[in-house]
């Protein structure tokens, strides 16, 4: 029986940048725990020596030539932006360092 505490859920929500109420955190704690119980069936499988499959196709070395292609104009790029200033995307102040 896996249990994910409300505190763990709170930490994960911060990593995922989701603002959730205490009630939502509590509900998610239960739901995530139930799902992990379901996943338990594969956690118990012996997979030693089995390589992971990240990708369903055995493809390698897909490359494009270094040739410019037309992109978007600044106007097209900025058209959907919630806030623009001086040809750039405006965001509220950034706290803390670049990771």
């Amino acid at each position: 029986m896996s249990r994910i505490s409300v505190e763990e859920v709170r930490h994960v929500a911060l990593l995922a940048r989701l603002e959730l109420s205490d009630d939502e955190l509590a509900v998610l704690s239960g739901e995530l725990s139930a799902l992990l119980d379901h996943v338990e069936q594969i956690r118990r499988l012996d997979t030693s020596g089995v390589p992971p499959t990240a990708h369903p196709l055995p493809m390698r070395n897909v490359l494009r030539e270094d040739e410019p292609r037309p992109g978007l104009s600044a106007a097209e790029a900025l058209a959907a932006a919630p806030a623009v200033e001086d040809g750039r995307y405006s965001v509220p102040s950034i706290l803390g360092d670049e990771p």
Partner: peptide, 17 residues
């Protein structure tokens, strides 16, 4: 992507999806 890699262009003018 095929956007130009160069320095000093007008902001957000060398972008694509």
């Amino acid at each position: 992507c095929g956007c130009e890699n160069s320095f000093g262009a007008a902001p957000n003018s060398q972008v694509c999806p």
